[in-house]
Computed example of a mutant assay.
Amino acid sequence: MSTSSNQKRSGWALVVFLLITFAAPALSAFIEMPGPWFDALRKPPLNPPKEVFGPVWTLLYTLMAVAAWLVWKREGFGPALKIYFVQLALNAAWTPIFFGAHALGLALGVIVAMWVTILMTWLSFRKVNAVAGWLFVPYLGWVSFATYLNFSFWQLNG
Rank of each mutant, 00 (worst) to 15 (best):
S28W: 00
G109R: 08
P36H: 05
L88R: 09
A92Y: 03
M114C: 01
L106W: 07
A67R: 13
G54E: 04
W72G: 13
A89L: 15
F22W: 12
F30G: 09
L119W: 14
F22T: 04
G35N: 14
M64Y: 10
I83P: 02
K82D: 01
I20S: 07
N91G: 11
N157S: 13
Y139G: 11
S10G: 08
V15A: 13
L60F: 12
T147N: 07
W69G: 07
W94P: 01
V71F: 14
R74M: 14
E75G: 15
L63D: 11
L108I: 05
L60I: 14
G133V: 10
W72F: 15
K43C: 00
S4K: 11
I97L: 01
A107E: 02
L135N: 02
K127M: 00
L140Y: 11
G54L: 08
T121P: 11
F22Y: 03
R42P: 04
P48S: 06
L81V: 10
L63E: 11
A92H: 01
V66M: 09
V15F: 14
S124Y: 11
I111Y: 11
K50N: 15
R126L: 07
R126N: 06
G11Q: 14
V110N: 03
A132H: 08
G35I: 05
A29H: 05
F30H: 10
G105F: 15
G11D: 04
G35P: 10
Q155L: 12
F98M: 04
N91T: 12
P96H: 00
L123M: 13
K82H: 12
F98Q: 00
F98C: 04
A26M: 03
F125W: 12
G54V: 02
R42T: 13
W94K: 03
V137R: 09
Y61G: 11
I20N: 06
N47Q: 12
F85Y: 14
T121N: 13
S2P: 06
W154R: 10
L70D: 09
S152R: 03
G35M: 04
A146Q: 06
A65L: 09
L14F: 03
L41A: 03
G105L: 15
V15C: 06
P138V: 07
G105R: 15
K43E: 02
V16Y: 02
W37F: 02
